[in-house]
Simulated scan of single mutants.
Amino acid sequence: MKPKITIKTPWQFIASGFGSGLSPIAPGTMGTLAAMPFWFLFATYLPFWGYLLIIIISALFGIVICQKASDELGVHDHGGIVWDEFVGMWITMICVPVSIPNAILGFLIFRFFDVLKPWPIKVIDEKVQGGFGIMLDDILAAIFSLITIHLILTWIFPIFA
């Protein structure tokens, strides 16, 4: 039986997306939703370079916190570890204009790639272990999502861009 993630340690609290990964139903989806208000704040109030800096620091920090939380739980990539979803969502939304339709679109696209894990994401998810592996598959899903949302906003729904 898989151990339950808690918020009793700082590593698990942050890795669980400040508790959003504690959801018994679809913790990854809840973590992605919990990342959206942060995206709104970062995209609205930070310069572009500041937004990118937050993503880079959060991704590097994520490798450490996801590893520590995994070690505490004794399980690689526990479902309640959702910090990777936070960073993935923020990458997905790079240079996407802030709006509710764009937020919904970005959310749906990122969840699609994160859940489906097309090649090479699935291979990375299966082969790369530790905190780096936990973060890397979501970063790749986010890059796929970033490209997809920009293609959609440019070619299909330019009204939202």
Rank of each mutant, 00 (worst) to 15 (best):
C66D: 08
L33S: 05
F86M: 04
M30I: 13
G50T: 08
G28A: 11
V87C: 05
I54E: 12
L46Y: 13
G28W: 03
A35M: 12
A59F: 14
W83N: 05
I91K: 06
D84E: 07
F48E: 15
F40N: 12
M30K: 07
Y45M: 13
I81M: 04
D84W: 02
L46G: 14
A34E: 03
W39R: 10
F61A: 12
Y45D: 07
E85L: 02
K68E: 08
P37E: 04
P27Y: 03
I91R: 03
I65M: 11
P24T: 00
M30W: 11
I54R: 13
G79D: 01
P37F: 04
A43R: 12
W83C: 01
P47R: 11
G62M: 05
P37V: 00
L53Y: 10
L46F: 15
A59S: 10
H76T: 11
G80M: 09
F42D: 11
W83D: 02
Y51F: 15
G74Q: 07
L33H: 06
I81L: 09
D77I: 03
I63C: 06
D71G: 09
F38R: 06
F48R: 15
E85C: 02
A26Y: 15
D71S: 09
W39L: 03
W39V: 10
G74Y: 03
F40G: 12
M30G: 02
G88L: 00
D77N: 00
I57K: 11
T29H: 09
I56M: 04
I54S: 15
A69G: 04
D71C: 03
A43I: 12
T32H: 05
I56E: 01
A26E: 06
F40T: 13
P47V: 10
G31H: 09
Y51S: 10
V82C: 00
W83V: 01
V82L: 00
H78W: 01
A34L: 03
W90G: 04
A26W: 14
G80N: 10
T32L: 03
I56L: 13
F38Q: 09
W49K: 13
G88M: 03
P27D: 00
I65K: 02
T44M: 14
G79C: 04
V82N: 01
F86K: 07
F61W: 14
W49G: 07
I57S: 10
V82T: 01
P27I: 00
H76Q: 15
G88R: 06
A69N: 03
L52N: 13
L73R: 01
M30R: 10
Q67M: 06
I57A: 14
G74K: 06
D84G: 05
G28V: 05
F40Q: 12
K68H: 12
P27N: 01
F42I: 14
A26F: 15
L60P: 00
L53G: 14
V75G: 06
I63F: 05
P47T: 14
L53A: 15
T29M: 07
M30C: 14
G50R: 07
S58T: 12
F48D: 15
S70G: 11
G80L: 05
T29F: 03
F38D: 06
I25V: 14
G62W: 02
G88T: 02
T92P: 09
T32Q: 04
C66P: 05
W90L: 10
W90P: 06
P37S: 07
L33I: 13
I56S: 08
F61Y: 08
Y51P: 12
F40Y: 15
H78I: 01
W90V: 05
H78A: 06
F61V: 08
D77R: 02
